[in-house]
Nucleic acid binder design. Sequence first.
DNA 1: GGTCGTTTCTTGACTGCTTCAAGGAAACGG
DNA 2: CCGTTTCCTTGAAGCAGTCAAGAAACGACC
Lengths: 158, 158
Amino acid sequence: MTDPAELERDLRSAGLRVTRPRLAVLDAVHAHPHLDTEALIGAARTRLDAVSHQAVYDVLRVLTDTGLVRRIQPQGSVARYEARVGDNHHHLVCRSCGAISDVDCATGAAPCLTPSGDAPPDFVVDEAEVIYWGRCRSCATAPAAPSTTDRPAERGNP
Amino acid sequence: MTDPAELERDLRSAGLRVTRPRLAVLDAVHAHPHLDTEALIGAARTRLDAVSHQAVYDVLRVLTDTGLVRRIQPQGSVARYEARVGDNHHHLVCRSCGAISDVDCATGAAPCLTPSGDAPPDFVVDEAEVIYWGRCRSCATAPAAPSTTDRPAERGNP
DNA sequence: GGTCGTTTCTTGACTGCTTCAAGGAAACGG
DNA sequence: CCGTTTCCTTGAAGCAGTCAAGAAACGACC
């Protein structure tokens, strides 16, 4: 649980009003990286007695727009959010259980990567988003049995 | 329009039955890279008199599963498909008009990139998916007026 | 502290992409 | 040519996310 005063300061410095739903959601995103919206609604409701799902959607949008949180959405997954912003890190996603983990970016500053061979015609690139696809250890060792300890990402799994 | 015999050969070598919807969709994906499903339904219907939208969804799933087409889905966009597979290339996406273009991968073979600093814990990576975000030339020069010549990607644009 | 204007949250309905399900049609091996 | 298997059609449903109108909360100013 992050210091409320710090969260409040973050909101204010982003030019946002400080409201209880915003504090709750922001704290939840800090506490649990890579959660989806539904889970964040739940997490916000443990902090507050009641929040509408619409409020959480609104808050997440505002926080994303102001850069306080980052939204990621690997294929086959719904939107997920994290509070680690500004360091241009990347993500590892497990193909079978959907687990996500962070990887530091080698180059550091965005766009950490530029299209190779400067062939690209007329594009001004400001960010390179990288997703590493593979299998986490538990799924790599037990291929057919996706672990249930992490939340699955793919919807249409047979 | 790709040679039908060639498309047929591709289907067979992937172990798939050759049907008219599959040929039509596969040809459409070859002809128009980065189209979304709705546009592909339209493109398939110019090749065939009638195809159900469900058939196109089914076909796209099968083609994706067998690796004959690749599915991409930048944030804020619906699913899009391309027939350029196996070369592990990447994509440039314009933030304002949603235009997508291809970039060759420098390294060539997948995973063209490995997580830097081998810090990542216990992940077997088989692919690195890179999306370069930025602005295409027309949008970079006219920031406030997204070009309508390319199909927009974002839905909730004000 | 109290008051006012603006922003934000609540409630409820709705959209759009995608998938599910059942039955008929087509592909392909024999 | 026939039977089995797979695939397409039709129609409906699911689900994440959005829209809209009114009530509540924030915070600036007095």
